[in-house]
Amino acid sequence: MNTDASTIEAWLEGRVVAYGKVDIGSFTPETPLAELGLDSVYALTLCGDIEDRFDLEVDPTIVWDHPTIRSLAHGIAGRLAAAA
């Protein structure tokens, strides 16, 4: 599986759209996740999805430390590299 940050970023964009809070094309990777409706329910959902996709367990507070899609993608890529 390709786990570079740009691939993860594209996957995260797809997840945010799938959660149904925003339309595709209405945000950028630098848009704050909070602005995209990523509340605690969806933060926890995203953690579960990250676990399923990358076999990587993360705490929902990761979205506090990485508050945009781009930042979060780099955070996940870094953790995957550290775990490899």
């Binding site: 959660y19 149904g20 329910v41 926890l44 959902t45 953690c47 579960g48 999805d49 676990e51 399923d52």
Partner: peptide
């Protein structure tokens, strides 16, 4: 709708 997602329920 979110509560139909298994990834959420598991967490």
């Amino acid at each position: 709708a979110a509560f139909g997602r298994r990834s959420l329920v598991r967490r």
